[in-house]
Each structure stands twice: as C-alpha cells, then as structure tokens.
Design a protein around this nucleic acid. Sequence first.
DNA 1: ATAGTAACTATGATAATCATAGTGACAAGG
DNA 2: CCTTGTCACTATGATTATCATAGTTACTAT
Lengths: 163, 163
Amino acid sequence: MPKRADLSDTFCPVGRSAELLGDRAVLLILRDLFFGNRRFEIIAANTGLGPQLVSARLKRLLVEGVVERRAYQERPVRHEYRLTAKGKDLFDVLYAMRNWAERWAYAPDETGGGPAMRYFHRACGADVGTAIVCPGCGEPLRYGDLKGEPSPALKAEQAARVG
Amino acid sequence: MPKRADLSDTFCPVGRSAELLGDRAVLLILRDLFFGNRRFEIIAANTGLGPQLVSARLKRLLVEGVVERRAYQERPVRHEYRLTAKGKDLFDVLYAMRNWAERWAYAPDETGGGPAMRYFHRACGADVGTAIVCPGCGEPLRYGDLKGEPSPALKAEQAARVG
DNA sequence: ATAGTAACTATGATAATCATAGTGACAAGG
DNA sequence: CCTTGTCACTATGATTATCATAGTTACTAT
C-alpha cells in the first residue's frame, strides 16, 4: 500500500486507538495474550497467522508499550510476551468486542443455546452474560475479574489449532 | 495480499468481531457515524480516506447489517448512511477505545490538562471521565446517554478537515 | 449553456500479507 | 559427537489491498 495517513498525532482518541487496534492481527494477538498464551509459537498457531506477521505485530506492540518481552528460561534462552499495564487496560475493548459478537454474530442455534464463551464474576460467582456491570453484585467488570469457560464447540476448535 | 483465513466462522467471539473491526477504515467510518456524520462526502473528508475505500467499507457494513442506506431527498436522489441497532450496539467498543486512548495515548501536556473529548451524562449532567458507569449516578453508560464536547484542539482539527 | 454538488467508479503505483522454507542457538539421546 | 528436535524467529517471492488522482453520472442553479 502507499503510505497511509498516520493517525497517531490526530487529536481524536478513537483515531489514535484505531491506529493500533484497526488491525486484524493485533486484535487476534491481544486476544491470545489475554487468554494467557505468552509464547510466540503458541500465539502463531492459535491465531493462524504466519510467524513473520506475528513477529512484526509483537514488535509494534513492544514499541507501543502494550507488551513486554522477557526471558522465561536461560539455557536455552526462551522468551515470552506479557501484557503491560497499558496492555491490560485494553481489556474493556476486547470484552466489548466479545459482547457484541455474542449478541449479533451467531446464528440462533449455532452455539447450542448459550454464548460461545461464558464468563463468571470471580467475586460473586454470577454468570455475567454480556453485561459490563455484574448482574449479580452490580460491580463494574474489569481485567482479572472474570473467569472464562469456552463452549464445547470453541474448546474443540482451539484443540484442533494447537494440536 | 493473499487470501487470508476467514474468521467469520470461528467460534471465538473476538475473532468474529475482529473480522469486521480489525480494520482502520471501518473504525474511522464508525466513529464518524456515531458522531452524527451520515453523508458519504463528509465521512470521506473527515476520515481522510479515499472515496473508493469509503465506498468499499460502507458496502461491507451494509452487508453485515451494521449500517443502512436511505435516501434523504429525491430530485436529485441523495443517500445517507445510518447505524442500525446492530451498529449502535458497537458503541461500547468505540467508547472503550476512546477511554483507553484518553488514558494512554496522549503526552502529559498535549491536551492542556483535560481529555481530548469530554463526555457528560445526559441523565445527571456529570462529567463521566473515562468511566463505564457514571461516577455521578452509578448508571451504566450506553449509546445515546452521553453528550460529547471536543477540546479546542480537536475542534480546530475537525474544522480544518472539513474545510 | 456553463458551473456546481453529491455520490460514487476507474486507473495505475505502491506496499502489506501470505505460504513456504530456512536460520541460529541450544539440549537430549544414541 | 553427531543427529534429531524445539523455540523463536528471518528470508523469499507471489498475490492483493490500499492509496492518490482523475473521471463519471445525475441532477440543480444561474
């Protein structure tokens, strides 16, 4: 593509976010990081993205301060990627995307009745559905507050990708 | 690009959303639609995107049922684009992107102290900051609940774009 | 008849993405 | 000590999306 206009210096906050998040690969990598996948090969396998693209996007996320790279073992040196505080604060965006998809992106009988991914509030145990405040206790839902349970169909799909 | 893997049939809800939202142009067009800009030329000018790209993305959004196209006048026929219920329900995603950017994407003195875009809760008048539930009255914030007030810098930038 | 506006479509150059293959560093097994 | 294996990438070449610019269609206003 030709050089597209850079949005990182616009004053519009959505524009600034879009510069980073308006990218399929970035969103998929962030999803995996929130899911707890930290290793390069696992992320590549789970997202279905090629290693070159994963490498390029992780570099961008490093530059933006959204992820950090650290060695999880010496001899041989192996690295993993973790969300920084700035990265963890993207939880609301990913969670909103999940909520929207659960409400609009599935055929009526596609998931067998329930959501593709069920979330429970750790604090009170309630199934939060697609709410942004807990329907059980009324607390706003933030990063770390939720425990996810994939539907059988989603679990099978994930197993097939990593396998 | 070569044919990339299609995510619209993955069971992962974030994957399904990413297929639509993992695109700079889509996010910018949605921003404009939420802002109240409905006309093709205005959207093209405000986003800085070429007419071909705006046309292609609006078509995709039509197919997805996120926007609808309707004539706002006959003789000559002129069309505008509006968010459907499915489109309006993307508010949470865009709002989360805005919140993240306000917290992380600006240099300390870049906005002159306040946020680039200030939002007030229509129901109680409180400045909501970057919260997802109103700090004044405790209500969850949804589409239509907020009234935006751009900072002087953002207002100037928008004026320059539309010319 | 000329100019203007809105909503696009057409064209050609450029650059991002993909699949596939290869690299470097190290460890374990025979 | 020599092959095989793992992890985290990098290199290559074909394909295709995106961009800027220009042109089109349909109609109104002067």
